[in-house]
Every structure is written in structure tokens, then in C-alpha cells.
Amino acid sequence: MTSGGTDVLPPLIDHHTHSVVIADLTPDAFRSLLTESDRAPVADPFDSALGLAVRRWCPPALGLSEHATADAYLSRRRALGPAEATKRLLGAAGLSTLLVDTGLVAAAGHPLLPLPELSALAGAPVHQVVRLESVAERLAARAPAAADWSAALTEALTAELAGALAVKSVLAYRHGLDIPAERPSPAEVIEAAGRFLVDQPARLTDQVLLRQLLWTAVDLCAERRPALPIQFHTGFGDPDLTLHRADPALLTPFIRAVEPTGVPLVLLHCYPYHRQAGYLAQVFPHVYADTGLTLNHVGPRATTVLGELLELAPFGKVLASTDGYGLPELHLAGAAQFHHAVADLTWQWRRAGACTAVDGERLALLLAEENARELYHLP
């Protein structure tokens, strides 16, 4: 790939992403999607490593020179219209398959595109990743009896999994990854479900029910042949996350407990704990990792961060994703950042005599496509 022009990037299986909005976003609304914060920004989000990445990779897809100013870029985007801009940006991302977490339904006050429409604009097949906590919260709205909670959850999750390639947990947001590894007892689940169904909070945060939800997912994923992977958000994210409790190393007891089931566990994003994730991927055969959200946000440091993950992680255990959400720019910049980081890293390794050109090409293919194809059993 080159650093400029409008060429479509090499194929990439985006194994964890979200949908986009088709709306005439105001400049402020656009900028709000260039940060993980849900607060009004004090400084311009374009003046960040992510902003640099967007201005580097996205303007050529809209007919501008790379590094166009933010104002020039937003003006061109408005002139093209949201549908045309989105089609160009997603098309330039070169995504061959998208695995979409459907737990989010809106961005900047606008609905996210349904999966068939996202697939049409991206020019690629789209598959669902079921967000576990959303299933439990929808079930609570139907108010089953506390004694029936476990059976009802199993039934609801079984139905959701029928068309999915994976499930995802946002345990890091709802409690933190530092939970006991063992399954809760039936009595504990009934008691916790009783409280949850009476209180009807908008979000599931009860530790007992979160553990029971995870183990229900493990059991159902293990029943599938081959087993379905479970993705975990780890590392940085929105302000309602407490960062030190999102360290993937905190999941180690649960990882050990799940190992006999054969269910793959995928650690998403991971920063600033990507080295811990690399270690876990090395020592546990069922653990995988990516730096999806991270490579966009660290901008010019993407090569360094990816290299730090690959210090310990086996090359066959690392995946590529954009974690694009709301803005199609995040899909394009995420894919471009990944390809550039891999190319830059392997060039450094070749220059140092650490690998051959064939090794570098093999690494790029594994991370971009082959690892995800094997893990998710894609055609």
C-alpha cells in the first residue's frame, strides 16, 4: 500500500467492528466521534494522534490530498453527502469481511445502519457478533420469574447465537475483569436475578449475573462444533470504564477455568495492557488478541504498539480489527493504520536481519486474514 492516493487497501478481515451512521453530522457531532470520551471536548479532537491518522488516510478517498485540514475535509464531506462519502470511505478500507458487534444502536444521536445496508456500502459480507449483556438486559424487560432466569437466559442466548459467528462481553465496563472464575450456584443466581428483576436497572452490573451470563455463553459456545469464540473488551474505552480493572491479566483465573472447554477467548484492544495480552496469547492455547481500537488512537505510534504486542504473542494468535463506530473514517483509518504498521514493522525487522521478505509477507497475511478465517471458520 502507499501513503496516499485512492487505491483500495489490501483485503482485511475486520473481526471486531460496529456499524456507521448516514447523517449530515455537524462539525461538533463529527468531532465527538473522534474520541472515546462522552463529554464535550475541551480541545479539538482533530488535534490528536487519531486526528492525524484520519487526516492522513481519509482525504484521498474523498478526492482531497492527504493531510487536508480538518475544515477542508469536513467541507468536502458535506459537499459529497453522507451516503456517497460513506460508500467511498468504506470501499477504500478494503474490508473483505466484517464481524459486527450489534450491541450499539446509535452514534451522535443517529441510528446505526442495519447490517444489510452496511454490507452493501462496504461491498463485503457482514456477520453478527452478539453482545452478551444486551441479551440479558432485553430478557429482564420481559420479567421472567427469578427462578426461571437461568433457563430463560439459555433460551434467549441460544436464539441469538443462531446466526452469529461470535459473542462479546463488555464485562470490563459493567464490573471489571477481576471477577471470581467459578460458576455461581443456582441459589446465588436466583437471589441476584430477583434483585435485578425488581430494580430493573438499565445496565446489568451484578457480579453474580455477569458470571452466570459468561458461563452460559461458554456452555453454548462449546456446544457448537467448532466452538464459537467469546470476545472481551479489555484496555481503554469510554469514561465509565475504570482502566486498571480492564487489564486482561485480571481474567487469568477465568481463562484457566475455560481452557478445558476449548472455547476461544479473544482479547480486544488491550492498550495499555497489550504486552499482558501478548503473554496470555502465548501461554494459553485458547487465547487470542488484537489491537483494534488502539492502532487508530495511537496514530504515528501504531508500529511501536503492534511490535510490543508481537514481542510475545504468537503470530498465529493476533488478529486485525478497526473497531470502527459511527464514522466510516474509523474503518478506513483503522485498516490503513494496521497495514502501515505491519509493513513498517517487518521492514524494520528485515533491515535488522531478523526476518526475510517472505517472513514479512507471511506475517501480514496471517494477521490480516488467515488467523481470523481460521478462528471464525470463514469460507
Rank of each mutant, 00 (worst) to 15 (best):
S37I: 06
A246T: 14
A53H: 02
F315S: 15
L295C: 02
A277P: 02
H269N: 11
Q212M: 08
T86Q: 00
P314W: 11
G360V: 02
F30C: 00
P186N: 09
D219Q: 08
L74F: 06
L165D: 03
P201H: 11
G316D: 15
P184T: 07
L104R: 13
H269F: 08
P116S: 13
E308V: 08
T294G: 10
E36T: 10
R174M: 10
Q231L: 11
A122C: 04
P272K: 09
A227Y: 06
H18C: 01
G262P: 01
K87D: 11
H339A: 02
L12M: 12
P27F: 01
A222V: 07
D344T: 15
P59Q: 06
L241R: 15
L228W: 06
G237A: 15
L62M: 05
P60E: 09
G51A: 05
R138L: 14
A151R: 15
H16E: 03
L74V: 03
A193D: 10
Q212Y: 14
A152W: 06
A341P: 09
S3Y: 14
L209C: 09
G5R: 01
A354I: 13
T26K: 05
V105D: 15
S3V: 07
G103H: 09
A72G: 04
R31Q: 07
L243C: 04
A159Q: 12
K87M: 12
G299S: 11
L112G: 01
Q348P: 00
T102P: 04
L210E: 06
